[in-house]
Every structure is written in C-alpha cells, then in structure tokens.
Computed example of a mutant assay.
Amino acid sequence: MSENCSHNCSSCKESCNDRDPKSLLQEPHEMSSIKNVIAVVSGKGGVGKSLVTSLMASSMQKKGYHTAIMDADITGPSIPKAFGMHEKAYANEMGLIPVKTRGGIDIMSINLLLDNDTDPVLWRGPVIAGAVSQFWSEVIWDNVDYMFVDMPPGTGDVPLTVFQSLPLKGIIVVTSPQELVSVIVEKAVKMAEMMNIPVLGIVENMSYYECPDCHSRHSIFGESHIEEVAARHNISAVAKLPVNPAIAAACDLGEIEALDAPWLSELSASIEKMCQ
C-alpha cells in the first residue's frame, strides 16, 4: 500500500504511487472559512503539546487574528480545561457550532460533546481518525485566520489522517530537554518531511527553571538539545518554555488566555510572517 493511499491497493486498478497526495485532502464544511491550519505535534505524551497549542492560539488572538483550536487528541482532550470551558457544543440544521472561549477563540473538542467530561472514549484508531475528520468537515469554522490542531502524540492514525487530509501550512513540534525525547522528536520531524509538511518551529517545554531571587537558570530536566535538532533540519524558529508555577496554575484554573507568553513571541511573529 502506498503511503498516499487510503484503501486496499490489491483491488485498485489505479497506480497508487502516481496519485497526487493532494487528492486525499478533505473539503471543510461549505460554510467554513479557514486561512491557515497548523498542527501541533509531539513524539511522545506529557511534553506540553496542549499547553503550547493553547498559548499559540491565545498569542495569535491577542495579535488581532481570529483563531481556532481543533482538539484532535480524542482520547486525552485537555483544551477545554485549560480555557475553563463548561458550555457544550451544539448542532443546528447546517452543522456543528464550535464553542467560543472568553477571548473569542473557537474550540471543538470531544469533551464539548460528551455528557460528562470524565467519560472515557473507548474507540479504536479508525473511529478516532473518523471523528477528527468530522471535526474538519462537519464543524462550521467561521472566518478563521489561524487554526491550531492539537494532535495526539506519536505518528499513528490521527497524525497520518491530519497530515494527509487537512491543508496544513506546517507543524510545530513540542519537546522537552531529555536526551531520549530528542530522539523521538527526530521521528516527528522526519514524518513531516516524508509527508512534505514544513516544520514551522520547535518548542522545548520545561526547558529551565529561573530562580525568582537571583534569576539564574537551572536545567532541571537535563541540558537542552533543541538547537542541535533544529540545526539538523534547518529549522530556524525555536522557543523555550520555563518551568513556571504560574503556567500550571493558569491551566488548572482555566485561565490560560490571561497568561502572557513572552517566550513564544518570536515564534508567533515567525509563523505570522511565514503564513502571510
């Protein structure tokens, strides 16, 4: 089976290796208008991918753009919690309507459709990938300048579905300082390269702790290797997030939009320039 194929090649009369990968792109809802789609990915879980997604969407919203988040992490959704969202999404005769945050960011997440936020989603991979496709094709995304797709970790069904079926302008890779994580990051970057998706930047979360008294920086989780990874793949946009109790508190309280994120300002400006 070709990497660009979505069916059983043995019963297909076409030459799948000659097919245009763009033929797999899925049409959004007829009433949607989305200018830039950026996926936020990680090679493993627990590195702060949803945090970076939330902060990037908030940063671009504060710049005056209308932003949105598609929470593609179906089995581990955390976006609604970070924004303190309790309202449920609903459908009208035209399609699904995303829920707006206090700051005006449009959100669609499986937790906005479940009766209880703590209900587990016990679905297999193809069903999960199908739900992500529905978030794209059945949700009315109105006049969105930047959509950030919060991906599940790894290189499985959902990342492949998003890479093949959504018109991505690029991806942001999220990592942490450990040596092992750097190896896993290489996998995510190489997957993007194989799918011809640009890597717009790399964010290293939990990069350092800054002492509030002397302002010296300490590498609690190991020395950073992010510049080495970025240099190997010609990625110029790099950002580092500190270990900061204020960040965790903002997420826990659902007040991520109230948090300033100067650590991501250069990355935001770079993406703004690249996506023009």
Rank of each mutant, 00 (worst) to 15 (best):
K187Y: 02
P120I: 12
G130T: 11
N116W: 00
P153R: 13
K169N: 14
G103N: 15
L160E: 00
D142Q: 13
L180M: 15
N111Q: 10
L122Q: 12
L160Y: 01
D157F: 14
I105W: 10
V181S: 11
D106V: 05
P177W: 00
I140S: 01
V139W: 08
I128S: 12
P120A: 14
P167F: 06
T118S: 15
V183W: 00
D115C: 00
G125C: 11
Q164C: 02
V174F: 02
V181R: 00
T101C: 07
L166D: 13
I172F: 03
W136S: 13
E179V: 09
E179S: 03
I171G: 01
L122E: 10
D119E: 15
I171W: 02
V121R: 11
F163N: 02
F148V: 03
E179L: 01
P177T: 01
V99S: 05
P167I: 08
G156D: 09
I110E: 02
M147H: 08
Y146C: 02
K187G: 00
K190C: 09
I172M: 03
V149C: 11
G103T: 14
D106R: 05
K187I: 01
E186G: 13
D157S: 09
D157H: 08
V121P: 14
Q134N: 13
Y146E: 04
N111L: 02
F148A: 03
M191W: 00
V173P: 05
M108N: 06
I107S: 11
A188K: 02
G103I: 08
T161I: 05
I171A: 11
S133W: 07
I110T: 08
D142K: 15
S176H: 04
G130V: 05
S176N: 09
I172W: 03
Q134S: 13
S176L: 04
K187C: 00
W141G: 09
W123D: 07
P167A: 10
T161Q: 11
W141P: 06
V144C: 04
P177L: 00
A192T: 08
V99P: 04
A129Y: 06
D106E: 14
P159G: 01
V144W: 03
D142M: 13
I172T: 08
E186D: 14
W123Y: 09
I110W: 05
G130E: 08
M108E: 09
G125P: 12
A188N: 04
N116F: 13
V173S: 05
D142L: 07
G104I: 11
R124D: 09
L122G: 00
T155K: 00
E179I: 06
T161K: 03
V185E: 00
G125E: 08
G154C: 08
V132T: 14
S133K: 14
S182V: 05
L113V: 10
N143R: 13
N143G: 07
D150W: 09
S137H: 11
K190S: 12
M151T: 08
G170R: 09
W123H: 07
N116D: 15
L114H: 06
V139S: 06
V158H: 01
M108K: 12
P152V: 15
I128Y: 03
V189M: 14
D145Y: 10
N116V: 08
Q178P: 04
Q178T: 04
L180G: 00
I128K: 15
R124N: 12
W136G: 06
V144S: 06
L160Q: 02
